[in-house]
Every structure is written in structure tokens, then in C-alpha cells.
Amino acid sequence: MLSDITIGQYYKAQSVVHRMDARMKLILTVLFIVIIFLCKNFFSLAVMFALTAVSILVSRVPFRMFFKSLKPIIPIILITAVLNIFYIDKGTVLFSWWKITVTTGGLSTAFFMAVRIICLIMVSSLLTYTTVPTLLTDAIERLLSPLKVFHISVHTLAMMMTLALRFIPTLIEEVDRITNAQKARGADFESGKFIDRVKAMVPVLIPLFVSAFRRAYELSFAMTCRCYHGGEGRTRMKQMKLSAVDFVALAIFLVALAGVIVLNYFFTALI
């Protein structure tokens, strides 16, 4: 159940995408999000869909992994689609009953939005599947390092992210363990009104917090022992170096951007 969560999950494989510089992957992911929101019609969306498909194929991460990350989002996609179908009143009326009208415009918008969300999820999962979390936080740290000018400690933020990623699975296991222990004492998490269920969580949440604080305390000791003293003078084992692959990928994305702009211009906008 809880342990199915795939936050920050890395999928080990040998691929061009895996070899790419984490910073470039991060930039391209952001760029992708920007471009896909620029898409105004199916032609430009098709370009981005193709780009998503090619990236996935090249990454050698099996498709089922993407389906896994998509699964929890499916209800959201469906709800948005249904809302779009019912509320958008554009184009030919296909079906009308009582207050409900379904139009071609509604259908195509629903489809357009769904594809857009799916592409978004796929590409962001691709980033986490092909990049070791530490490298990802490193990349964020390096990309945001100009913020130092504003006295924002980017290193601290990145460190906190790494630690969060490290301890999420541990805390999830802990929740499972405590839940089982309280169930063994007859705690009932499944029945009763909403307020009862919230109350039933107290015996799990308190031990969880106590344990999280204890862990944080011990971890800070351990980090101090390992000479951690902030970002000052720290080196990195994994160097980040842009290679030809990164520039090729950047070029492809820029071409896609140009394509989207051109297609938006030549064809009528859907939204």
C-alpha cells in the first residue's frame, strides 16, 4: 500500500538519458513544461507527444514504470476530462440531454488536456527514473547557486531535500510498523465516522513524530561526526560535466520549441 509510492525512485539502466548531465535534464524538464503549455493545437501537441515518446524509448526505462507513476493521477485526468466535456460548449452538438450537452469542442479539449497532463507526468517521472536523487538535488543546488546573492542558502535547501528523500521510505516503513502494532492492540482504522478515523490516527502519529525527532537528533550527531559543516569547502565525488549528448538534447528541445511556435501560428488555436 503505502510502500508503492514512487517518489524519487531511480531506475537503473544504461542509456543516453541516464548519462546526461542532471542539470541539463532539469533544465530540459522545465523547458518541456513551458513548451507544452505553449501548445495551442493538436499539431503542436503532437510534436511534444512525439518528443515524450522518443525520450522514453531512448531512456530504456520500461513502460510499466511510467504506468505506475501515472496510476495515482488517472482519477484527476478523468475528472478534468469529464468536466471539460460537460462544460465546454463549442463546435457541433453531438449529444444533448437535460442540462448536459456534449460538443465536439468539449471532446477535443478534454482529449487535449488529458494528453498534456500525461506528457507532463511522463517527462517528470523520466527525470526521477533516470537521475540519482543525490545528483538531482546537487543539480538544483548548482543551478540555483546564483541565489546566494540574496543570502538564500541553496546548499541547506538541497541537503534538506536529500535527507527528505532518504527518510521518506524509512518513515513509511515506520508508519506500517506502528499501524500494525496499534492494530494488535485493537486500534480500529477502518470504521467509524470521519472524525473517529482522524482520532484513530493519533496513536500512530504521536509515535511517528517522536521517532522522527529521535532520528533527526541522532542523524545530526552522525553528520557532525562525519565532519559536515555546511556547504563551505565541500567537494563532490560525482562531477557534473556537460557533454555532446546534452547539447544535442538541448538542440532537439529548441527545435521542438520552434516547431510548436510555428505550428501555433499556422493552425487555428484549439484553446
Partner: peptide
């Protein structure tokens, strides 16, 4: 559990030397 910092084994082993600026 409470002394491992990184999400990958080898990154964790690197943590100390990184702090030392090696």
C-alpha cells in the same frame, strides 16, 4: 538507519570525504 545520509549507498560513503573537501 539514523546515520545514513544519502539515497544511494556509494553516495553515502562519499559524504564524509566530500565534507573534508577531498
Amino acid at each position: 538507519d539514523n546515520q545514513i545520509v544519502a539515497t544511494i549507498v556509494e553516495d553515502d560513503v562519499a559524504f564524509g570525504p566530500e565534507n573534508l573537501g577531498v
